[in-house]
């Protein structure tokens, strides 16, 4: 190790970091590990079994909740990504735009404020205007707080894309929509994809708002899991959690790998 490296290193930081990463993955590992536990008691290991996965997958209420979550997440993802894309295009591409700062703040507002306040706000709004359809309520609320998550990677991509390309397209006789369809959109696609996936995951994972808006027929998976937890920890819960962990990690890896590849290509 060279001298310049050694003065930059601090004794203990390495150990602390390793412990930190262990701690970070300990809970995930524990859940996965116990999901294969044969015993009815969560934390008493008696043998390997996959029976709790079978139990979980045959639980009709659980499957219903999963379906609600998926439908809400897909719809919110589509709406949030579309709204975020339109807003990001205007905010990065319109010169001399008025209200630019305030518009950016408004798009990012759900990130700035505590979710419980927003959840209360939409609950009261919906009950005031008599919007009782559980699914519509969930999709509207989820679209709102997913929009900034979709917005950030799309805007970053647009900001990182020099205006030359769009100018070149206009120079080569492309009308405004052709410029968007053939140049802008393909070039920001990694950002759009990352934004959409993030919005999907944020919606799938949401507990606070979904719990507040919970009403007949519109119980999402996290809300249902919460009700199961209140009844006591079961190995079945571990199996469901493991499936959710696997899904999240696969999506996260997909987004990060695609983004890294896009970064390398543009570098």
């Amino acid at each position: 190790m060279s001298a310049s490296r050694s003065v930059r290193h601090y004794p203990g930081f390495r150990l602390l970091s390793l412990v930190f990463f262990l701690w970070l993955y300990l809970p995930i590992g524990v859940v996965i590990f116990y999901s294969f536990n044969d015993n009815r008691l969560v934390s008493v290991w008696t043998g390997f079994s996959t029976k709790w996965y079978a139990t979980a997958l045959s639980n009709q209420s659980l499957m219903d909740a999963l379906e609600v979550s998926l439908v809400v997440a897909v719809l919110s993802m589509i709406f949030a990504t579309t709204i975020a894309l339109l807003a990001a295009l205007v905010l990065t591409r319109a010169p001399g735009l008025k209200f630019r700062r305030v518009s950016e703040t408004v798009v990012n507002l759900p990130l700035l404020l505590p979710e419980i306040v927003l959840a209360v706000a939409v609950l009261i709004l919906f009950s005031q205007i008599g919007l009782n359809n559980g699914m519509v309520r969930l999709v509207l609320a989820h679209t709102a707080f997913c929009t900034p998550f979709a917005f950030m990677p799309i805007r970053a991509r647009l900001q990182g894309m020099p205006l030359d390309f769009e100018e070149a397209a206009r120079d080569l006789y492309a009308a405004p929509f052709t410029v968007f369809r053939r140049v802008t959109l393909p070039m920001i696609m990694p950002g759009v994809f990352a934004g959409a996936m993030t919005a999907f995951v944020i919606s799938m994972d949401d507990f606070i708002t979904s719990n507040m808006l919970n009403s007949g027929g519109a119980t999402t998976l996290p809300v249902y899991i919460f009700s199961l937890i209140r009844q006591g920890t079961t190995p079945e819960l571990n199996a469901v959690s493991t499936l959710l962990i696997a899904a999240s990690l696969i999506l996260a890896t997909l987004v990060l790998v695609l983004n890294a590849r896009a970064m390398r290509r543009s570098a």
């Binding site: 020099p162 030359d164 390309f165 100018e167 070149a168 397209a169 120079d171 140049v183 393909p186 070039m187 290509r265 543009s266």
Partner: peptide, 10 residues
């Protein structure tokens, strides 16, 4: 136009 950094569509 031939652009300074070419602006070839990647």
């Amino acid at each position: 136009t031939v652009f300074q950094n070419y602006a070839l569509f990647p």
